[in-house]
Design a protein around this nucleic acid. Structure first.
Lengths: 132, 132
DNA sequence: CTGCACCCTCCCCTACAGGGGAGGGTCAAG
DNA sequence: CTTGACCCTCCCCTGTAGGGGAGGGTGCAG
């Protein structure tokens, strides 16, 4: 299978497939005598894994590391568990930050309805935001 | 006041101040005959506004647009109100996405404790992630 | 043999908010 | 006059996941 067909089957772009090879989330492809990349069916499984891992927020770098365990003949289970824990903690942290930000935005909006635009002094640019 | 002193007073770096001028969130500075930027006290107020606006998640581009209203002698109030509404909606959207992601991550962690690593087939790389 | 679809590498570009450093000018004190 | 602190512009670099396009090779049909 050439790269164009693989792209069509997976819905990924040719650029993306070459990029995946470059960053190491899929194996370096075999080449035809003319230099064309060729793929067998096993790459499809790999790409499904990459997609699943990206869907839960893993970066290509993290995915490459997980894949590397397999390439070394090791089970990535423990490593994956740690990575997922870190990601969960990170997501929690981001959610807390955004909630905080959200409440600040709401406070600003409330103030915006309470304040009179006439009080808005040019030097502070905007009383909604800069009033402390 | 030269740029170094302004940097020290505000806690911003010299690079940041020059960048702010370049992107238009502060006015183009006056220069000494030798070509040094000079600032008066009014820039401090402006920089406080920039900081406050960044703190609620506005980009420098958005801040520049708000500032531009003032430069044109208009009140930015209505515009700011719209921008804040959009940001609130965006933050809400992000929080929803992250909650969804969070529950997926939890589901994966649960499966990880339930599954036996021995079931982990090399071709799927990791049964925690790729099991559907 | 020529046309056309497909493929290759190489290089630059995106957003965001600056950081690092080269190479050189300015200005006050000693 | 020189030293040292400060300033200038210009250019490249950061991370993420690729996208766009130039310039040129491959491989098969007609």
């Amino acid at each position: 299978m050439l790269i164009g067909e693989l792209a069509e089957q997976t819905g990924l772009s040719i650029k993306t497939l070459r990029y995946y090879e470059q960053v190491g989330v899929i194996d370096v492809a075999e080449r035809t005598p003319g230099g064309y990349r060729t793929y067998d069916q096993t790459v499809l499984e790999r790409l499904r894994f990459v997609r699943a891992a990206q869907a839960v927020g893993l970066t290509l770098r993290e995915i490459r590391e997980i894949v590397a365990f397999r390439e070394r003949g090791q089970s990535p289970c423990a490593h994956v568990h740690r990575v997922l824990e870190n990601h969960t903690a990170e997501v929690d942290r981001r959610i807390r930050e955004l909630r905080q930000l959200r409440s600040e935005l709401t406070a600003l909006a409330d103030r915006a309805t309470a304040l009179d635009p006439a009080d808005c002094s040019p030097s502070t640019i905007c009383h909604i935001i800069s009033a402390k």
